[in-house]
Design a binder for these strands. Structure first.
Lengths: 252, 252
DNA sequence: TTACCGATGTTCTAAATTATTCGTTTTTGT
DNA sequence: ACAAAAACGAATAATTTAGAACATCGGTAA
C-alpha cells in the first residue's frame, strides 16, 4: 500500500473515530511505528490532523458536536437519497439548498456536476460547494447557528426572495401521515417557505426516520413539492395522495 | 492491446477501485512496470488520474487550488504569529476577521477562547469558529469566491459598516519599505479599510514573505494599526517608524 | 525492400519509502 | 520526586519504485 493511500485512510479513520493511537494504526496497516509517526507528522504539518503523544486526533477545527453525530445517522440511506436527487439536477442549473444534514449529503453528491449556481443559508454546503471554481455559490448573511451551520432570520428570508431559481432542495424534521411537513424551528420554516415560493421545482428529501415524527411548526404539505426522495415507501394513503397531486415519488 | 485501449481500461479501473498499484496493473495487462509507468504518467499529465508512489488513484475532484498550497506555505510561522495574536485577544471580546490564510490560522488559534463575537467575510473562518456554541459568528452574505472562500463586494462593505467592534484582524499581500500596506485585490482592500474604520484596535498579521512584495492596491499604512504581528524583525527604518507611531511590534 | 516511427522491453542509477537502531524526552506509576 | 516504561526523533540501512537510456519489435510509407 502506498504512502498516499495510507495517509488517506488514516485521515478517514481519524475523522470517523476522533482519535487514534499509533499502536492501533500499526496493527491496522502492518507497518512499523516509525512509519506511522512519519505519516502523522506529515499530515499534522498540513494541518489535516492534530498530533498528540501516542497518537493523533482531529484538527481542533472539527470538533465532535451533536451535529456531527447526527450527520452520521442513517448515512447510507442519506447517501442513496442524495445520489438520486443529484441525478435529477442537470448541469448548469440554479438551485436553493437549505439547512439539514440530508441536504449536506446532497451537496456532496452535487460536487460532480458542472457549473451549478447555488444559493444557500447553510454554511457547510457553501464551504463544500465553493471548492469548485466553476460553481457560483451565494451565501446568505447573518448569524451562524453553531448547532447546524445554518443562517436564519428575517434578513435571510428577504435574501432568498431576491432570487428565482430552477430547483429548491429542502429538508424537514418530520412528515405527518397526511403529508404535512413539519419542523422544529419557526425561523427555518419561514426560509423553507420562501425557497418553495421562488423555485420552479421543489425537491424534498427525507429518510424514513422522518415519518410520523412530531415536530411543532407546520411548513406546508408534501403535495406542494415537485418530487419526494426517500428511502422507504410511505404509507399507502400518502402514496396515493402524491400520485393524485402528481408529485414524483423516488424510493431509493 | 494498443496503448490507447489499455489507458482507457486503466482509467475505468481507477474510477471503479479508486486506487491501483503498478503491480496490479502489471499482472492485469501482462506488460512491464515501465510500460505501466509511462501510461500512468501520460494520464496524470492529462489530469485523468493522480500519480502516487507505487500506483495511481483518482484525480481528487477538489482540485489542489493555488489556495490550498498557499495555505501550507510558512505554516509554522503563521502558527506562531497566530498564537501571539490570540494571546492579545481577551475572552468575550468582539472582532472582525477578514480574508487570508494567516487570518484562518488565527481563527484556529482563537478556538480556545470563550464567548467571542466574530464578524467575518471569510467562509473558512466562519465554518471554523461556528463550531463553538458559545461564540457568536456573523458572516457577510454574497457570492463566495472559490479562490479563497472570501465574500467581497459593495454589499459586504456596507455589512461591515453596521458594526463597531473591539478588534479588527486584517491580513495583507505585501508591505512596502515605508510601511505602506498593499493588496492584489481592490474589493478586498475596501473591506479591510471598512474594518479598520470600525475597530477600536487594528491588529495586522503578516509573515516575512510579505515584506517588499509588490501588490498593486494601496490599503493604508502600518502606522494606522494598533499592533503588528510578524515572524521576522522588519527593517530598522520601519521599526523606528512603528515606534514613533506607537504601534506595538510583536516578533514571534 | 528499406528507412522510419512509435510502442515496448531491458538495464541501470537515482530517488523515495520503510525498517531498524539508539539516545533523548515525555508520560506514568509509586 | 523518582524510576520505569513508553514514545519520540535522528541517523542509517534495506527495500521498493521511478526515470533515463538504449535495444528490440512490428507496422507503415516511400
Amino acid at each position: 500500500m502506498s504512502q498516499a493511500l495510507r495517509q488517506n485512510r488514516i485521515h478517514q479513520l481519524v475523522k470517523q473515530k476522533g482519535y487514534l493511537t499509533i499502536d492501533e494504526l500499526v496493527a491496522h496497516f502492518s507497518v512499523t511505528p516509525q512509519t506511522i509517526r512519519r505519516d502523522l507528522n506529515q499530515m499534522a504539518d498540513q494541518g489535516l490532523i492534530e498530533r498528540h503523544h501516542g497518537g493523533a486526533g482531529l484538527a481542533s477545527s472539527v470538533e465532535n458536536t451533536a451535529y456531527q453525530t447526527r450527520k452520521i445517522q442513517h448515512l447510507a440511506e442519506k447517501k442513496r437519497i442524495a445520489e438520486q436527487v443529484a441525478r435529477h439536477i442537470p448541469d448548469h442549473s440554479s438551485l436553493f439548498i437549505n439547512i439539514g444534514t440530508t441536504n449536506e449529503t446532497i451537496a456532496q453528491a452535487l460536487l460532480d456536476h458542472r457549473g451549478l449556481k447555488v444559493v444557500t443559508n447553510n454554511l457547510h454546503v457553501a464551504a463544500m460547494l465553493s471548492a469548485r471554481p466553476d460553481f457560483t455559490v451565494i451565501i446568505a448573511g447573518g448569524e451562524v447557528r453553531s448547532r447546524d451551520g445554518g443562517i436564519v432570520g428575517e434578513a435571510t428570508r428577504d435574501f432568498v426572495h431576491q432570487f428565482k431559481l430552477d430547483y429548491g432542495i429542502i429538508g424537514i424534521s418530520g412528515i405527518d401521515e397526511d403529508g404535512t411537513l413539519l419542523d422544529f424551528d419557526y425561523q427555518e420554516v419561514r426560509i423553507a417557505q420562501a425557497i418553495m415560493e421562488n423555485s420552479r421545482y421543489v425537491y424534498l428529501a427525507a429518510d424514513h426516520s422522518k415519518y410520523g415524527r412530531n415536530a411543532m411548526v407546520r411548513l406546508g404539505n408534501l403535495t406542494q413539492c415537485s418530487a419526494f426522495f426517500t428511502d422507504a415507501r410511505p404509507a399507502q394513503a400518502l402514496t396515493e395522495r402524491l400520485h393524485q397531486h402528481q408529485v414524483d415519488l423516488h424510493v431509493c
